[in-house]
Each structure stands twice: as C-alpha cells, then as structure tokens.
Design a protein around this nucleic acid. Structure first.
Lengths: 235, 235
DNA sequence: TAGCTCAGTTGGTTAGAGCAGCTGACTCTT
DNA sequence: AAGAGTCAGCTGCTCTAACCAACTGAGCTA
C-alpha cells in the first residue's frame, strides 16, 4: 500500500503532463485524493524529493522537480565516501569511471566542437590561468571546462550525467583527501585537450584526456596504467 | 533541522564503517539518539531508502543499503517517461547516451576481454539464438550480454552504471512503445560485436556497436545519423 | 524430535494538535 | 496617491500517542 502512494503521485504528474515547476496538490488535497493519512503522503513526497521528482518549498507548496540527474550525485557521493572509509579504492573507481567515459567521448568530439564553444573554452582556460596566477583556482572553472567541452555532443542528458560524475568526484575529493593541486599543470592540460579537439586530431585528444586524468590519478597516490588506456588487468 | 537528520544518519554509517547489510538502530533508538520524533526519523529514512543508502524491512529492522546505483534507475526512468509524454525525445536521448558511452568504451575493450568472459558471451549468444528460434527472447539475455561485455573493463562502478542505463531504457521501452523486435538481427549484431572485440579490431568493434544501436534507433522511428558516429549537429 | 503457536520486537499507518515560513492584501504613514 | 509595514491565511514541518501488520524466536504440543 505504502509505495503505491509514490506511484500514484508519479502517475498524477505523468497523466497531467505536468512540466517541471508545475504545482502539485497540497498535502491535505493529496490526503483526500489518495485516501491516506498526512504522514503517508509526506513520507511518499520525501522519497520522491530524494529522487528529484518533486520539489518541496516550505510555506509555499509542492512542485514537479527539475527532473535532473542531480539526486544521483548524493547517492554516488555517499557510496564513494562510505567505501573509502571502509578501505576500498572507491574514489579511484569513480575517477576511472570518468576517465573511461570521457576518453571514449572525446573521439566523437574531436574536430566537431562549434566555434562558439571553442571560444568559451578559450575564455575558461584564460580565466583559470588568471586564477592560478592569483592563487586559488575556483572549482567551478574546472567544472565549466568539462561541461562546455561535452556540450558539443548535443545530448543534454549526457551532459548532465557527466556533470554529476564530476560533482560527485569533486565533493568526495574535497571532503576526504586534500589532493595537492598544481593549477599550472591543469591549465596546460586543459589547453592541450582544447588544442587537440580543435585540430580534430582524435589520437592526440584521447592522449590529452588520458594524461589529464593520469595527472589526477597520480596525485591520488595510485599507479598510472602503463602505456595503454586499458588497465583492466594491471593489478 | 530536517535534512540534518538524514545527514546524521549517514554519519552514523560512515563513522561506524558499517558495511552493506549491517543493521541500523531501530526507529525508537534513532528517536532517542537524534532527539527527534518518530515521524521525522521515518521521513529521513524514507528519503535515504529512495537513495539506496538504507534498506527497510517491515517487522525486521533497518539496514545499510546495498550502495548500488540502482536508485538512479528510478529517477532516470521517470524523467524519461515524463519527458516522452510531454512530447520530448527523451527516450532517444537515453539511447544516444548509451550509444555514446558504449561506443567509447568498446575501444578500450577490443582484444582485451579475458577468455572466460569470451566463452560466457558465446554462450549468451547461443542462448539468445535458441530463444529466438523458440519465439521470445528473454530481456535478461540481452542485458547479460552487455553486462558481461563491459565486465572486462575491471571497474565495478562502471558496470553498474551501464546496467542502470540499460535497465532504465528497457523499462521505458516496454512501458511506452512496443518496439518491433527482430531477434535474429539482434543475435547477428551481438555476434559481430563479439567477433570484432575478440579479434581486437577497434574500428570494426566500434562500427558493430554503432550498428547495433543504429538498429534500435531505426526501430524507434528516428533517423540514423549519416555516415559518422557523431550526430551532434545533424538536426 | 518435528512442527505449531504465541508473545515480543520492528516497521507501517492513522489521528490531531501546534509550529514555522511564505504570500498577498490591507492599512497606515508620508 | 504612493510607499512601506503589518497581519491573516495558506503552505509545509514537527510532535505526540495510539494502534495495525510483518517477522522472529522461544516455548509448547504432538
């Protein structure tokens, strides 16, 4: 009976073709509509909120959520942190996931990034160089670089997933280990990635991405795979 | 105050180094421990359950969840279904996500799949052929093929994510559109993928994966991108 | 000894009351 | 007449207290 409530609320959204931001019935209305107590309604809404399906604003109302993949960040982050504290190499796994996916995608991208994005990427590298010279590089600058890079693939969902991976990794990294950063190296690697992608050189682009991740991996204290992108059986 | 409760329960797990399946305090114990009412405890647990962080068993107790990425399937599925009903091409986007990621990964895989996995993949294709001849192909056979294929990358997290994408796509597909299936074509394509990967021919492997997804895409009623894996600016 | 029964524990659900944040209309001041 | 301050009302948030439902395990019965 209980989890049906979640399903029935989801059905309300689906059947009503409600877009993100549309307002949902109030708690008392849902009680009447679904024939359950307030408590059950609230528990269902809490669960849906955790999945990003609804958005609850205190004193205002309940709304259809942004439908982003953001909620998965929470789960990924927790999983990684918990694994790390239990002595697993969960952070490395998350990094390898990003490396594997981004290396694969860069080939589709080389030589096909629209001029507008290229310009934006140039600006982002310059911004990072300025920040590096000034001292601290804002985390958002790195994030924006990766996000803008893959925007050219023209798939909104894919972009969101990659950002989610980035966010999870970033959150875990700052929470857990204080990774030594050399902003200048990061700048140079970003520039190399951009140059390779701009020139359409697939091999070089893959190499650049791999080196970028290899750099992070090294700072993570893990051996870098030898000579080949695949490292499935290195251990 | 409210969402702090979730954080504090998560902290219990982290600080206690609790592994998946470990039992958590009972609801009354959590009330005393956190100094909040039962209702608030339950709402927090419901949210954590939705994220796969805890697992609640009626009449038995509350436990640390499996920490899988399974919960994201729920969110992805809903997002896709909702988008579909609102006239967006969300299902196509999900398929493209899978295609982009799997095409990218196959290059890392070609020629590096361990013999045991190759044998298993052979068996899976044979099983699918038998099922195809008998009539209906079990969905799990296709799922197992994709899962086994990428197992060789040696990253458990990556495998889980790919399975989550597969699951979401499968669920939406069966719920929404009754995609015409030609099991024989699927069998042939799986065999081509396996042959290419076995021979270590990266180009052919990518081509085979692309063709496999192109096949699904066509049945989805969408134009197949012309001549190049990238289709960012075809529209 | 094998199986059943029942008491105790745990989560599930309901009800009612009061708290807290936000909005919009109303009123008072300028 | 225009602006700012106030307040009534809606909304979600939290708490208490009681009972229902599922599961376990000890003890009883055959």
């Amino acid at each position: 009976m209980a989890s049906d409530i979640q399903e029935r609320i989801k059905k309300l959204i689906i059947d009503g073709r409600l877009p993100s931001g549309a307002s949902l019935p109030t708690e008392p209305e849902l009680m009447a509509l679904l024939g359950v107590s307030r408590n059950s309604v609230r528990e269902a809404l809490k669960a849906l909120q955790a999945m990003g399906i609804v958005e609850i604003r205190h004193g205002f109302g309940t709304y259809v959520g942004p439908m982003s993949v953001a909620p998965m960040i929470e789960g990924l982050t927790f999983r990684t942190v918990a694994g790390h504290y239990r002595g697993e190499d969960s952070l490395l796994q998350l990094l390898e996931l990003r490396e594997a996916v981004e290396t694969g995608l860069i080939a589709r991208l080389a030589g096909r990034v629209p001029a507008a994005d290229l310009a934006e990427l140039d600006a982002l590298i310059e911004r990072m160089e300025r920040e590096a010279a000034a001292g601290e590089v804002a985390a958002d600058t790195d994030r924006a670089f990766h996000a803008t890079l893959y925007r050219g693939l023209g798939n909104l969902l894919l972009g969101e997933v990659l950002e989610a991976f980035w966010d999870a990794f970033h959150r875990v990294r700052t929470d857990l280990v204080d990774l030594p950063q050399d902003p200048k190296v990061t700048c140079r690697q970003h520039r190399e990635i951009l140059d390779a992608v701009r020139s359409g050189d697939v091999i070089r682009a893959e190499q650049a991405i791999r080196e970028h991740f290899g750099n992070i991996r090294t700072r993570l204290g893990s051996p870098v795979p030898t000579g080949h992108p695949n490292h499935a059986y290195d251990k």
